[in-house]
Amino acid sequence: MQVQSMEKTIRGLAYVVGDAVDTDQIIPAEHLVYSLTRPDERRMYGRFAMSGVPAAGQGLPFGHTPFTEPDVYRSRYTFVVGGTNFGCGSSREHAPFALTEAGARVVIAESYARIFFRNTVDGGFVTPFESEERLVGRVRTGDELELDTVRAHLTNRTAGEVLLLRPLGDIADILKAGNVFAYARQAGLIPAAP
């Protein structure tokens, strides 16, 4: 896994889902058997990312829009936009891993479940932003978004509006370091990498 600090600007398409999208919907349990390191297997996480979301909720407001097309291992969507309690349920780090492996860079939700949020940050996967207001119903799947990661401004270029996100707060240091290991090394808590 590459450890990299966030870019200033991230552009791409939005994929919108509803409230309480749990980790079983992000990556169904039956797929957790694959290795997260072997290249021929880890791509399965990209293929099945978000496949547990019921069809009517896949890619709002339209529904029936898969995150990753069948037999393709990467998603065309850079931003996952959700409602409240995104990532609730299990502690599986396979969930933020799957989104990242599919090619997503950022999740924007009204609120997060604690373990999912922590996993995204400590593992250096998708960056989790919180929106000031509800974006489900306002951003549509396929909208072109541009995120200024420093100012936490989100521009919906399709709708032509600017949406405010919350500042990253006390996790910013870990995000800047790249993941919790890099952070702990910078802080002198663990020795240099092998």
């Binding site: 997260l36 502690s91 599986r92 373990i115 922590r118 996993n119 250096g124 919790v180």
Partner: peptide
Amino acid sequence: GVGNTDAALIMGTGK
């Protein structure tokens, strides 16, 4: 409960 990354850090450091 935590994810794999946090658990791996504990495996190496106990913290």
